[in-house]
Every structure is written in C-alpha cells, then in structure tokens.
Design a protein around this nucleic acid. Structure first.
Lengths: 114, 114
DNA sequence: CAGGATCCTAAACGATACTG
DNA sequence: CAGTATCGTTTAGGATCCTG
C-alpha cells in the first residue's frame, strides 16, 4: 500500500528510512508520544495536540493504523466513541522515542511558548 | 532563523519535535547517517545518495550546517573541493540514529531493491 | 462524537541548464 | 567540482462544511 510507494531508499544502505517513514512528518511522532502515555479518544487527541486539523489528525491516525503502530477501537454507541492505543509494534518504538526526546532536551534551547 | 518558524509544538509537552525538526524530511537522516561513517565531498554525497537532486542536496546541507549539525569546509583551489563532516553536535546524534536503525531493521520487511 | 468531503495553500521535491 | 538559477510537479498540511 502507501508505504511501498513511499520507500525510496532501500537502495542505499541507510536502514533508518523505514523508521523515519513511519514517525516522520509533522504530527506522527507527537501522536505516538501521546499514546505512549495512555490510550486516548479521537477528541482527546484533538484537544491534546493544539493546532492540528481534524482531517489531518484523522488521516495520520489511519496511516499509523495501516502501519500497524496503533489500534483503533470503535464502540458502537450513540454518540460514538473511538479509542486509539499503541499496538505491540507501536510500543516497541519506545526506545526510539526516548532517544529522540533525550537528544532534543539536551540540544534545544528554549521552546517557543505562546 | 528557519528553525524558529518551523517549531510549532513547543506548546504541547512533546520534546521530540526538536529532533524531528532536524533529522526529519526525506533526506536529512540519510545525509547524517552517511556522514556518521566519514566526511565526504559534495559529489561523493551526491553519488552515495541515489535519486537526490543537486539543488535539494545543496539546500539540505545548508540547513544542516545552519542547525550546527554538519561542518562545511571549502578548499580554495581549482577545481574546488568541499568537504562535509559532522560537528560535535552532529555526532551526538549517534545514539538516536542507532536507535532508529535498530528499530527499522527489526520491524521492516524486505527492502525494495531494484 | 467521530470523521468524511471538498477545496486550497505552502512548501518540499525534482530535472535541466548554466557558472565561477 | 560544487554548486546556483529557473521552472515545474507533488504532496503534506489546512479551513470549512457536512453527516451517521
């Protein structure tokens, strides 16, 4: 599916591209980071991530689900309730995320709070 | 400079964005990965990374230099010679890169060789 | 509440030609 | 050799409205 077309660099011996392909982009890593804490509903994610458009959040979630990183669980009730959580594979990204976080904290100056 | 405009998520408590901002994109992590091995000239990088356009490689290198990740050393001779290498800060990304690489190797199926 | 549909913008990416 | 200039393409990201 999607991933196949997007994986350009298997030719070079850079084994990082696969991971970057999954956590790359403007929001994916943030979503994963948040879900690493605990499962969340769609609306919660939307509120937790300031600035993300509904459609974008929706699509990112779908892509992460397609990549086997997160699990979407829909409860058939009115109003609807959908809970997103990390899969086993998603949770295996923890080391990567911690590594990224610790480098960020060590190397980045003051964040822009506003 | 550039980084400031591009850092959107300091508001959320996701400390990963800073690192993703630097190694994100389609090529940055590949360039860093290659330079992690040894310094390379512009043309070598171009040959080592199949598919990257000259203009794109050039701009990525400039951005990485601006972020303090790589060092550009130009030798004033004809024909010109320019060598790119990782700075101390760039080399400090090694843990992150190894972490990404090991996750990728563990989780990704067959790369598309062609 | 969770999101799909539609339309739009900005920016990333790319191919080719050219220059100091 | 190491790029820059120019132009074109692609796609991620976004605003708004609508629906089961």
């Amino acid at each position: 599916m999607k991933k196949i077309e997007k994986r350009y660099f298997a030719a070079c011996d850079c084994p990082i591209t696969a991971a970057m392909d999954i956590i790359g982009g403007k929001w994916k890593h943030i979503i994963i980071w948040i879900l690493m804490d605990e499962p969340k509903r769609f609306g919660e994610l939307h509120k937790t991530i300031p600035g993300i458009a509904l459609k974008v959040l929706s699509r990112q979630l779908k892509e992460l689900e397609a990549d086997g990183i997160i699990i979407r669980e829909a409860f058939p009730q009115v109003p609807p309730k959908v809970v997103y959580s990390l899969s086993e594979k998603g949770r295996s990204l923890n080391d990567v995320m911690q590594s990224l976080a610790s480098w960020s904290r060590a190397n980045i100056m003051e964040p822009v709070i506003n």
